[in-house]
Design a protein around this nucleic acid. Structure first.
Lengths: 188, 188
DNA sequence: CGCATATTGGAACGATCGGTGCAAGATGTG
DNA sequence: CACATCTTGCACCGATCGTTCCAATATGCG
């Protein structure tokens, strides 16, 4: 049971990410993290550092997992800004509908708990949200939106994304979330 | 210091509500609640019961505080459904802009932490969200929307409300939030 | 094989968690 | 004044928190 690592580091990080995602930072106790990852406390600490560091690595893992999906959805040539919005939100809807991952969105859960995070965690959360906004803005510009339009629509799409996460956590159905997303994509 | 109550029960509840609002249920420790209310542990427990009961009473206090404002904004005769949406979201914007209360929205913070709440807390949160939706739907019907339109617009306005709370927590400015609200009210 | 290295499970740390018990004392009633 | 009632401050409870330490041991290298 000892000598060389007995587990897959990336898979363990993926599971830890799910624990933070489901429970939020405060309620993601070390016991829940060890149980969720299958690792012992020693392995957790020696591999990822303390809870705050593991949380930040989970956030980065979250970005690495879903960033390519959003990137692909945004990359294709889009006939209009609203098509960009629809494509983006569809990725979010697909993620939320995935029964293999917790409800909502790790980034949104973390954002609402910002006062409970340390300075590094807060900074990572804010940086990731800003990154999403910038990515959206870029894609909207590429789809023919002017600067002001792109900035406003990026902000509103980010907002819709957050709202889908909250409603999902509150128990709203996939159909209701799809209704919200469709309305958000119905823009001039 | 003893004999008859040395504090105003309602004011203490208001302050406890602010603690839950700012920190969320998990991070609202008894110590933070005693410090925030100015009460001793004995007074807290004898007056409000345990933490879960105090949380539920804080949620109800939240509703009692802001329900009348939303009710008033929704009651007036509105020329169109979109006017209803604008009036509703303006109340939310005003609350968020109030420097005397924490960022975001107690109900939204609680909704994202639903897995951390006990069954009673979850039920109250869900019931309150449903209540908001019903109130919105009613006002939209009164403003001339047909049933399907009212249902969809109520859902979307609820969603926008949640998104404003999340963005507020993430540090977005009042102007940015107003932009999101204005776009949400710009509907057919 | 022998030894340094790396990893593991588990015990243990002090701090904090939510919650309870109780003595002290101020108040209202007689 | 005497007494029952109520509230308060504070100590204290077991449980859990995040974190550290350490003995045990499997591995890779010489």
């Amino acid at each position: 049971m000892v000598g060389r690592k007995q587990f897959d580091v990336d898979e363990a990080l993926r599971r830890a990410m799910h624990v933070f995602w489901r429970w939020g930072y405060s309620e993601a106790s070390i016991d829940r993290l060890t149980e969720g990852t299958g690792l012992g406390r020693s392995s957790l600490y020696s591999t990822f550092g303390d809870k705050s560091a593991l949380f930040r690595k989970s956030l980065e893992r979250y970005a690495q997992t879903y960033h390519p999906l959003y990137d692909q959805a945004l990359s294709g040539p889009h006939p209009s800004p609203s098509a960009v919005v629809a494509a983006y939100l569809q990725v979010t809807l697909n993620r939320i509908a995935d029964p293999a991952v917790p409800d909502g969105c790790l980034l949104t859960v973390s954002a609402t708990q910002i006062p409970a995070l340390d300075a590094e965690g807060q900074a990572v959360v804010r940086a990731m949200i800003d990154g999403v906004r910038a990515m959206l803005e870029q894609a909207l510009l590429a789809a023919g939106a002017d600067e002001q339009e792109a900035a406003e629509l990026a902000l509103c799409t980010l907002a819709t994304n957050k709202s889908l996460a909250v409603l999902s956590r509150a128990g709203f159905s996939d159909e209701e979330l799809a209704t919200v997303a469709a309305a958000a994509a119905r823009v001039p």
